[in-house]
Design a protein around this nucleic acid. Structure first.
Lengths: 143, 143
DNA sequence: AATAAAGGTCAAGTTTATTGACCTAATATT
DNA sequence: AATATTAGGTCAATAAACTTGACCTTTATT
């Protein structure tokens, strides 16, 4: 790999770093108003993406231990944002759902991010959106 | 915004989340071997990108307080990875540089990430690389 | 009946940050 | 020349978001 190519890849690294940071920045202010943090958002996000997922699936997705989400999840339940109920197929498993209040908050938080992404991807067009997605998928699969 | 578009944007969100996580994951193992953490990497990374930057510029780039980097930076100086010297134009300002040892470590860490990015961007071609970069820049500028 | 799995909880410790206060040295302002 | 400001460094207390380890209940599996 020559010097020039290295620099190009470093530029990509820098873009990745700053773009991700710009992307996650705005919801933090909203979260603060509700007295919750980024962990809570992540939990709401994953439940919204797959309603009824188990605690174990959530742990696996977030790559944390059950102890790590114990406190924030209990808070979210107490605040009435999520509910957990035993799965029919196995009553040891608890399925997680957003309440209506939880759905509203999640929609608000994700809405901010959609509001950021939408004009950008509209502007570049669906073909380029596809290219961006393919590259991101490759990065995920390179693990 | 219709329901379908919302879901597409949520998919983008999910890709962004997992791609970033996949990207930053691998260097952590190397860092651990050296007994340092992600903060140290970030410091090395920024100094490598702009040798001679001031402490204040580093703080601004990282968006942290001076107290936050005080400890890791002192460690990096003690370990001989970076040096700081007074700027000629204003001797209150300290310019930060990587030592040769620091350059080697930074190259190793960034090398892992370049090694991940290179085959992917080679495969999709330079035109698509440009598209990805343009989109990321737009996300950064949307702040 | 015994074992295993899903989940919950307590405790202690770590990393990475924060705010606030205070200090030195160098430069800018009056 | 005296004073104020800026760059940087450091100590202390606190917080968030984790970690590992131990232990418990409930439900399923063997």
């Amino acid at each position: 790999m020559d010097k020039k190519r290295e620099e190009q890849l470093n530029d990509i690294h820098v873009l990745f770093y700053f773009a991700y940071r710009a992307f996650i920045k705005e919801p933090d202010r909203i979260l603060e108003k509700h007295g919750i943090q980024r962990v809570h958002h992540r939990i709401l996000f994953f439940i919204a993406r797959k309603p009824g997922l188990s605690v174990n699936e959530l742990l696996t997705s977030l790559e944390v231990t059950k102890q790590a989400i114990n406190v924030p999840m209990r808070q979210l339940i107490e605040m009435g944002f999520i509910i957990s109920k035993p799965a029919e197929y196995d009553r040891r498993v608890r399925e997680l759902y957003l309440t209506e209040k939880g759905q509203n908050l999640e929609r608000q938080l994700s809405g901010v991010q959609r509001g950021k992404l939408n004009p950008i991807f509209e502007e570049v067009g669906s073909k380029n959106e596809e290219i961006w997605k393919v590259i991101m998928k490759k990065i995920i699969d390179s693990e």
